[in-house]
Amino acid sequence: MAWAIGAGSSGSTPFAPAVGAKAISIMRASFLVGLLGFAGATLQGANVSEAMGRELIHGVSLSPVAATVGLLTAASLVAIGVFTGYPIATAFTVTGAVVGVGLALGGDPAWGKYRQIALLWTLTPFVGGGIAYATARSLDSDPDRRPMYISGLAGAVGLVIANIEFAALGSASNAASISTVGAQAFPLFVSAESTAGKAFISLTIALTCAGISYRELARDEVRAERRFLLVLGGLVAFSAGGSQVGLAIGPLLPMLDPFELPLTAILIGGGVGLLAGSWTGAPRMIKAVSRDYSALDSRSSIAALVPSFAIAQTAVFFGIPVSFNEIIISAIIGSGYASGGAGSVSRKKMGYTILAWIASLTIAIVLGYTAFTAITMIR
Rank of each mutant, 00 (worst) to 15 (best):
A4C: 11
I363C: 09
G319Y: 14
W3A: 03
A237P: 07
V127M: 01
L105I: 00
G45W: 04
P147N: 00
T280C: 10
I327V: 12
T370A: 15
T135E: 11
L207V: 10
I5Q: 02
A136C: 12
A156N: 08
I354S: 10
G81K: 00
M255V: 15
R219A: 09
A282N: 01
F83A: 05
L36N: 05
A21N: 05
S173E: 10
G53T: 14
I5N: 10
L235D: 04
F317W: 11
V82G: 01
A18F: 02
I205T: 05
M27W: 15
K287S: 10
V231I: 15
L267N: 06
R28D: 11
G6Y: 03
R54L: 01
Y114I: 07
A156S: 13
F228Y: 12
A97P: 07
V245N: 00
R291T: 02
N47H: 15
T124W: 00
F309R: 01
G241N: 05
A359T: 03
G152Q: 04
K349F: 05
A224I: 12
V181N: 03
G81L: 05
A118F: 01
S239I: 05
G70Y: 01
F38N: 04
E50F: 09
T90Q: 08
A29C: 10
T122S: 15
T370K: 14
S330N: 01
S301C: 07
Q313G: 03
T180D: 13
R145V: 10
F83M: 07
Y337V: 02
A304R: 06
S191F: 11
R379S: 15
A342Q: 06
L72W: 13
F372H: 11
S9Q: 14
E260S: 14
L252Q: 02
K22N: 13
